[in-house]
Each structure stands twice: as C-alpha cells, then as structure tokens.
C-alpha cells in the first residue's frame, strides 16, 4: 500500500453519507476519490457502506402491504368496516 496521510481517513468519514447519496460537491468528491484510491480501508468502508444502503433499499419495497387480518382490525377500529373491499 502506498504511503498517505491516515489522518484524512477520519475527516473523510463526515462526508460519506452525502458522497454515497451523490449530493456532495465536486471538490469534496474528488478528495474522497483520490483518498480512496490510495487507502484500502477507506475503499472497503465506502464500498460496503454503499452496499449496505443498497440492500436496505432493495428490501424496503417488499414489505409494503398490510396483512389482511391487520387491515380488517384497523378498519374496524376506525369504524370504516363498510369500506373493507
């Protein structure tokens, strides 16, 4: 591994969320990309952080409907049983 300034690793951390969301300014992005190209640890953190968020996004879409019995009890609690299709 090439020599570089490890004090950067910590300061980089603060911008990581914006970086993976694509909302970080160009200059800071370039700083992160330069650092990550030289620092194995930070590269792993960035890659696995991105993957972590991706996995949660993937699973989010799957639990979108309310089980039928729960739905029925909800409509009853709200006196809306006449709208239970």
């Amino acid at each position: 591994m090439s020599e570089h300034d490890h004090s950067q690793c910590r300061s980089l951390l603060a911008s990581l969320s914006d970086y993976v969301d694509g909302t970080l300014g160009d200059e800071l992005c370039a700083d992160i990309e330069r650092h990550v190209s030289e620092c194995r640890d930070c590269r792993v953190v960035v890659d696995t952080l991105r993957k972590t968020i991706y996995l949660y996004h993937e699973t989010a879409a799957e639990n979108a409907s309310v089980p039928e019995v729960v739905r029925e009890r909800l409509y009853r609690a709200l006196n809306l049983e006449d709208y239970l299709a």
Binding site: A14, L16, D18, T48, T52
Partner: peptide
Amino acid sequence: KTRLLRARLRLRDDL
C-alpha cells in the same frame, strides 16, 4: 444528516 450517517455506519459495521 449526522444521525443518518451514524445509523448507516453502525449498520455497515453490524452487517
């Protein structure tokens, strides 16, 4: 943003 970053980093560690 601060809380989101902490949450994401903790989840990353856990996973």
